[in-house]
Design a protein around this nucleic acid. Sequence first.
DNA 1: AAAAATTTTTAGGTTTGTCTAAATTTATTT
DNA 2: AAATAAATTTAGACAAACCTAAAAATTTTT
Lengths: 224, 224
Amino acid sequence: MNLSTSEENYIKSIYHLQLAADTSTGSVVNTNALAKQLNTKAASVTDMLKKLKTKKLIQYERYYGFKLNEKGTQTALSIIRRHRLWEYFLVSKLGFDWDKVHIIAEELEHVSSMELIKKLDTYLGNPKIDPHGDPIPDVNGRLPVIKQINLFMLPLKKTGIVSSVGNQSPQMLEMLKHYGIGIGSQIKINKVFDFDNSLEIKLVKQPACIISEQVAKNIFVYHD
Amino acid sequence: MNLSTSEENYIKSIYHLQLAADTSTGSVVNTNALAKQLNTKAASVTDMLKKLKTKKLIQYERYYGFKLNEKGTQTALSIIRRHRLWEYFLVSKLGFDWDKVHIIAEELEHVSSMELIKKLDTYLGNPKIDPHGDPIPDVNGRLPVIKQINLFMLPLKKTGIVSSVGNQSPQMLEMLKHYGIGIGSQIKINKVFDFDNSLEIKLVKQPACIISEQVAKNIFVYHD
DNA sequence: AAAAATTTTTAGGTTTGTCTAAATTTATTT
DNA sequence: AAATAAATTTAGACAAACCTAAAAATTTTT
């Protein structure tokens, strides 16, 4: 099934709105919300909904709302997979800051080669979490169960892999850069100082250093 | 200047046709040739030429042919730069075979972020030649003067960097994979056996090995 | 349960990039 | 230099994706 960039954007937005939606209403999305999300007008949304219905990607009854069916959901997950893998690439390989990658990944995600995504995934080491801490769906559209915890909760001497950072202000980025902490960094807690809850941490190939409780609480690690 | 994917493809094709054209005619391109190259019809080309003229990217007088002006040429070189950097990435980092990357790079080249290309270039080590042996324009649209020579011509004990391969048949790819030779490999000639002109070569982190004259003549190296 | 407000859809247009078919212009034969 | 052929352009249409404005359906208010 070959989808246009526009169709893909609609599918992705519907997916995100469904997730955010009240499940009690059956995760049905409404036209205005989608129009707002996509920065377009309600009339345009209706046009596209008709097309997505004929392509059998959504369930849609006019005036009654709409939602992705199984095929649509799988399509959305595949697009999200591409988006998040590219974000991971941009941050971990090209050295972009977290907050700059979304717009670029938004373009890259529409490059459709299966082979490309397969090889990119392998090259990146099959990451499970993107730089914002969101899970990356696997080839089969399955979302990994993320055992992401606050660095503060990591048991002493156990290795965690930095998966995301809560505060993405330039100040925080500067500090993390200084400590050499980035997405994917292997990190261990050597000691907790009870006085102020600061932590002595150890990163691979770097001397141990101390970070404040405040910093630690903004760092999330992947830990199995 | 924000160009659509279609406009970019036209600009790129005109550039390539101009290069291939007889310079005696002033490198002027004709409508049918462009239509054929772009897999479209002459009428569509005429439509687009009008638009590219109003955007001041080409010189165009109806019935008299057309060519890129300075602005158009710079635009073309920027697109070609993106294309070739992506091809380099796909081969050297993701492990694609040379002959599979063109179609994918054709999509990636339209992702427009300047920052992305700048960082990609740095990440790849500012390559000068793409996997097909074609030069990669620099940020300012200057084409590097390529000192690409046949491996056979590389002076004994001097290091060359593999830049391209003449024969891209699966058989050749298999053989190169076996020897661990790829684009970017650092290669040295230890010895030439006069008997059959076979070469003893040495690659970084690999034991010396011997390749036939026939193989050597299909390998091109960058050497300064 | 009417009236009012909101949401959604339809109707009819616009732009981009394409097309076919016909009309022009240029080039080549004879 | 006509006649013929080839290349190019115009004219008019079409699909995709968007728009505005008006109509229809639903929901909320009174």
